[in-house]
């Protein structure tokens, strides 16, 4: 329970950071998607059920705070979580280079998926968004990849701390 609360509060904190501190120019153009990093961490470290619910919640929150009327993140975030689940046993996900590459690539893919969904679901053609792939999506993907290392480290340490505390409490109760 504590772990779930920790992850939820981390998600809220990261989203607030993304919506306030990182939303001002010039950072805004290349701001990293911190909540995506969290969702990927959930995919790597949590079981499918609990992690999936949290990823869904994160996507829902993103939709809630953004001008997105279609609710696209509620779809793409659990999808991203599932991709991370799929890869977690095939690669050594704690390696720095893998983390960077995987997160940057996922960020890029999610952006392209969002663009595809927007083009498909919007009645009028959205030619205005095409240049965003180069001006926003690529730099953002790279920046997201770069912040992965400290964020993963923070989340891992938080989870380890909670695990240790749980163990200590268990020993005390057994004793």
């Amino acid at each position: 329970m504590k772990k779930a609360l920790f992850l939820i509060f981390s998600g809220l904190f990261l989203m607030s950071l993304q919506a306030t501190f990182l939303s001002y120019p010039p950072i805004q153009r290349v701001r990293p998607d911190l909540t995506l990093v969290l969702v990927l961490y959930l995919g790597f470290s949590l079981p499918l059920f609990s992690g999936g619910i949290l990823a869904f919640l994160m996507g829902f929150l993103m939709d809630l705070f953004s001008g997105n009327v279609l609710g696209l993140y509620t779809l793409t975030r659990p999808l991203t979580f599932l991709i991370a689940q799929l890869f977690r046993n095939r690669f050594y996900w704690q390696g720095i280079s893998f983390q960077f590459l995987f997160v940057a690539l996922t960020s890029l893919l999610e952006g392209l998926l969002l663009l595809l969904l927007l083009i498909t679901l919007t009645p009028s053609p959205l030619k205005n968004l095409y240049p965003s792939v180069l001006t926003h999506l690529l730099p953002q993907a790279l920046c997201t990849g770069l912040v992965t290392l400290p964020l993963f480290s923070f989340l891992r340490k938080g989870m380890e701390f909670l695990r240790e505390e749980e163990e200590r409490t268990g020993i005390r109760l057994r004793g």
Binding site: M15, Q28, S66, G67, G111, L129
Partner: peptide
Amino acid sequence: VIGRDPSSWFRSVT
């Protein structure tokens, strides 16, 4: 205004 759009695709404020 207490916040801005957390995504890069949309333009909104809270």
